[in-house]
Design a protein around this nucleic acid. Structure first.
Lengths: 222, 222
DNA sequence: CAACAGAATATTGTTGACAATCTACAATCA
DNA sequence: TGATTGTAGATTGTCAACAATATTCTGTTG
């Protein structure tokens, strides 16, 4: 009886389908391909990705604790709807974590890291001067990632990343003008300065304030 | 062909097995019934709980993002091992979240909540006077839960709870003497006072410091 | 026409079977 | 002896089928 079994060719090491599906699902949600509040149909998704429902279910469970979806028994999983209020709270939370991370980096005083951060600030300045917003955002992302990783605290890093994704559930776009970018990078400069000085408290405060300011800049666009 | 199908009797509302298994697994880990670093055998657990491997796998994925287990592809899920260093970082993180929660509660200024918190402090004093440590810990837990819930920020609350569980992976027991309890409850008093006064900043600072002090008290016992 | 009851359908919950991979141990060879 | 290879068993990864529940449709009744 024609049972189609699974087999993936090639030398490439086996990555469980669950992870593959998880990443794809996450992307779909963050890119807004599925609207907030919408139900994720297991069978549809499974067929769409060419897998069975098992991996899809596991992936959903995985996403659940990241706050990207919510599950209702016997009804399915739904893309989480994020109220503006909740999103702002997420910003607060993330700001605290960011501050913590900056403080840790300052304590570490790793010359290589510090140099890279300093360079990132310069590069962002260049991007602003060139009016290259996409590039600015790219470096900005790398800048904050770098800090999160350099802090060396796995849990806090994951949390920071996770909260960052969660915030993206709020689909409204933030349009930053030139001025906003300049201000933001000036704050970056302050963070790096504190880190370079090895002043953990100042770095923490600067890192946190930077994120709180981002929140404010976001707020006024709505 | 004698296929044993699933059916659970009774009027009780259907709670998915995945959740049941998840809770049981979490309990086993937190109670130390499975040692840190140990592998969780899917089949064994499934038979033990009288379910199939599906729900067990889903439960594992669920626990993964809470930091209680770690998964290695094609090898299985392992109870996470928490270094002392990581545990202390968790305390820092949790202290920040706790501070945030306390600040929120102060802003809310809900008389009912405030009254309950004040009463809890009195009850803990009574428990200390009666040298009833178990009761103290019970109220203490309820006290902090109450604050987390009253803050009204779902994400922060879940995070606070989650971090609390994660810390328990560090199995070493903290033996608190009478003096430690008194000091701790004095700090509780300070937190409630700030909340009652509606001073969010003070409440935040007190809540955070209380947890950092707990960390210090823990530290010296090792 | 609205409200309800019941059947038909769609979707989630759970399972057992099979494939792929890893692990442990034995056999082989230098 | 020690390293390596090969095989057998155990364990995870995946799937398709069936059960239980939720949802939708339809016809009936007031």
């Amino acid at each position: 009886m024609g049972v189609k079994q699974y087999m993936r060719q090639g030398i490439e090491r086996q990555r469980p389908l669950t992870l593959e599906v998880r990443d794809e699902l996450e992307r779909m949600i963050l890119d807004g391909e599925v609207a907030a509040g919408e139900r994720l149909n297991e069978l549809t998704l499974a067929e769409q990705m060419g897998v069975s429902r098992g991996p899809v279910r596991e992936a959903a469970r995985s996403l659940e604790h990241e706050g990207l979806v919510r599950t209702v028994a016997n009804q399915g999983v739904f893309v989480r709807e994020l109220s503006l209020e909740s999103a702002l709270e997420l910003y607060d939370l993330r700001a605290m974590i960011a501050g913590y991370l900056c403080g840790r980096v300052a304590e570490k005083a790793d010359p290589v890291v510090n140099k890279a951060l300093r360079q990132a600030v310069r590069d962002m300045d260049a991007a602003i001067a060139a009016a290259d917003e996409p590039r600015y955002f790219e470096i900005n992302l790398a800048f904050h990632d770098r800090i999160a990783i350099a802090a060396g605290t796995d849990r806090a890093q994951r949390l920071y990343t996770s909260l960052g994704k969660e915030v993206r559930l709020l689909r409204r776009r933030v349009l930053c003008g030139d001025e906003s970018l300049r201000t933001s990078n000036h704050e970056h400069d302050g963070i790096v300065a504190a880190i370079e000085a090895g002043d953990a408290d100042a770095a923490r405060a600067a890192g946190m304030q930077h994120h709180l300011n981002s929140k404010s800049r976001l707020k006024i666009t709505m």
